[in-house]
Nucleic acid binder design. Structure first.
Lengths: 210, 210
DNA sequence: TCGGTTACATACTCTCGGTATGGAAGTGAG
DNA sequence: CTCACTTCCATACCGAGAGTATGTAACCGA
């Protein structure tokens, strides 16, 4: 065992714990997963877990934030590859739906998150990640005149709720990959309805108008 | 103690348990509420609770179904008072948002429900209550040509997700009653975007076009 | 009235979140 | 290097609460 610095020890242990927690929380759910099991999967014991995390919910919160970082990074990357604000928005929604095919994401973020952390905390975290990206996209679309005016954050939040439902719906479908276009089309319709009117033939303009 | 029939005993006890569970689950959340506390609040003991319900989740499920019946009945009543399918739909959405001001409803149905019962079970129950009413409303609007064609159930589910978010958003606002119109307007925009196009000046037609 | 079933209370077990304590690993000053 | 000090982590323990076993009282059907 080579000599390790304290921060290295802490980083390794917490990383192992979060990784193990992500695995178990994501597979079995928060309630059905014990701290002992997480610690064992991470190669340590309960003592280590409670040294680095105040309680079970705090460990879960770390996993939740981890998931938020993953999805928001993926969304930003997908949106950045698009030529204009509107297609970036559509692309982001599609990417979100695809991401919902990950069972761990669904269990941790969509199912357990609100119940364990509370709605307030969940949205506070999401406002710095997923919701931030979505709000920026909607704000850009509004600024470009591609979408009707309004509060971007409120609109993002409603859209986010619809997307979460769509993602769950998709994931439970018999053939998720096959069902994606249909569900995505319905989601795009929702976006299209708040598109700027009149729906002229703007280049790259909102769909659903023809 | 007058002589009671068995079904009467059962009905009274289960009703008392469900009422107490609704109170405590709604106030403190599922995880923070013990079976003993529920039983005591219902005037019985744990033995009675486990005699009538297989486990804690089954008791919660009864509360969840109870809430579903309440909201769906209220929605149907509100929609029935409207003259046409489109205004009935709008009225229903507004009524749903108002209903979200009830903390018990939010805690049981929106926060704990999915985590405790699982998404599958929750949506299965809702398909027979809230989602059924919403789907019928959307189906009627489509049939009346007030809304673009599509799968009513899928559209209802997305709309439902957006409404749940809107309801939480509303409830956490400083002045919920005051914020209701703004949030409701944004929700109506979402509906308006899937409205039938072209948006001619149909009598009682969809808003958001002016 | 009486055997059998249902409704409920009491007493118990056992899992699991959280704490207390002891020791090993790292740190910083002299 | 060394030695007091802090940080990291393991082991042993505690208490709360979900679920069970068992006993008893209330109902039911004959």
């Amino acid at each position: 065992m080579p000599r390790r610095t304290q921060t290295e020890r802490t980083d390794r242990t917490t990383a192992a714990l979060v990784a193990a927690a992500r695995e178990l929380f994501g597979r079995d759910g928060y309630a059905a997963t014990g701290i002992d099991a997480v610690a064992a999967a991470g190669g340590v014991t309960k003592g280590a877990a409670y040294h680095h995390f105040q309680n079970k919910a705090a460990l879960f919160r770390a996993v939740f934030v981890h998931e938020q970082r993953r999805i928001s990074a993926r969304l930003e990357q997908a949106a950045a590859a698009e030529p204009d604000s509107w297609s970036a928005l559509l692309r982001g929604c599609l990417t979100f739906l695809e991401h919902c095919l990950d069972p761990t994401f669904r269990q941790v973020v969509l199912l357990d998150g609100p119940a364990v952390l509370g709605w307030e905390t969940v949205r506070e975290i999401e406002r710095e990640h997923t919701l931030r990206v979505l709000t920026a996209g909607i704000g850009a679309a509004i600024a470009d005149g591609r979408m009707a005016g309004g509060d971007p954050l409120v609109r993002a939040q409603l859209m986010f709720g619809a997307l979460c439902e769509a993602g769950m719906l998709l994931a439970r479908a018999g053939d998720p990959a096959g069902a994606l276009p249909a569900v995505a089309a319905e989601a795009a319709r929702l976006l299209g309805s708040v598109a700027a009117e009149p729906p002229e033939n703007r280049p790259g303009g909102p769909p659903g108008s023809g």
